Simulated scan of single mutants.
Amino acid sequence: MADTLARFQALFAQDDLSCTVSDALGRSGALGAAFRPVWPGARLMGPAVTVKVFGTDLSAVFDGIAAAGAGSVLVIDSHGVTGSAFWGERTTRAALARGLAGAVIDGGCRDVTAVRTLGFPVFSTAVTPNAGLPGGRGAVNVPVAVGGQPVLPGDLMVADDNGVVCVPQAQIANTLEQVQALLEAERTLLASTADPALLRPEEH
């Protein structure tokens, strides 16, 4: 798996990679359209460490950061809470110290100027000044559902300006092969024609 992830990481700089990954998954896998980068141009890729919060309690977010390995993406399920932030400057600095690759939050983020200045990729469904409060509740590395998409620990998260896509862990190797093939076919097609009939996607 480590080799497969490394080969996927080699595609990290590819523009609009999330679109190709979704295509490779049968035009699926994307989290809801409400997920947007906190700062333009943010992109991330890495295996998920999942967090399920309790109410507005953000204790499990810090627990997740502490449990996450370098290169991981924290995926936070807030059960639709958007009036309190589960991410900000403190979590960003803690995540950077751990070498995390980014965060995906089905909920709010704050301190967006600091997050942008620190260059940490965060995708969220809301931005609010209100902070969550610690209370010692929540869970780490459990199944979650964010943006209508199930996410399990170890699933591969891919995000850019188009949104966020989740690749189930069991499908990572096959999806990588499909993505590589699609990218090559796209390069060949776009270099050879601008004919609208030829550029039309195939029906499935």
Rank of each mutant, 00 (worst) to 15 (best):
F123N: 15
G80K: 12
T113G: 09
V61L: 05
G69S: 11
T175C: 12
A94H: 06
A103S: 14
P134A: 11
L183C: 14
S78R: 06
T193M: 10
K52T: 14
A34W: 04
D3Y: 00
V122L: 10
D160Y: 04
D155W: 02
E184H: 08
V61E: 09
N162Y: 06
A173W: 05
D15E: 13
E186C: 08
D57L: 03
G138P: 05
P201K: 03
Q9E: 15
F8S: 04
T175F: 03
Q178V: 08
I76W: 00
K52N: 11
F120G: 14
T117V: 08
L183E: 15
A2I: 02
G163T: 11
H204Q: 09
A33R: 11
F123I: 14
T92G: 13
I172G: 08
S18N: 05
P40L: 01
A85F: 02
L198K: 10
E202G: 11
T91D: 12
A159P: 12
D3Q: 03
C109L: 12
A34K: 10
A145Q: 15
L176A: 13
T128V: 07
Q178Y: 01
L182A: 14
L58Y: 13
G29D: 05
V75A: 14
L182S: 13
G26N: 07
G136V: 10
L199Y: 01
M1I: 05
V104L: 04
A33I: 07
P37D: 03
R90G: 00
R36S: 11
S28L: 00
T82C: 04
A6S: 11
T50I: 05
P196F: 00
P40H: 04
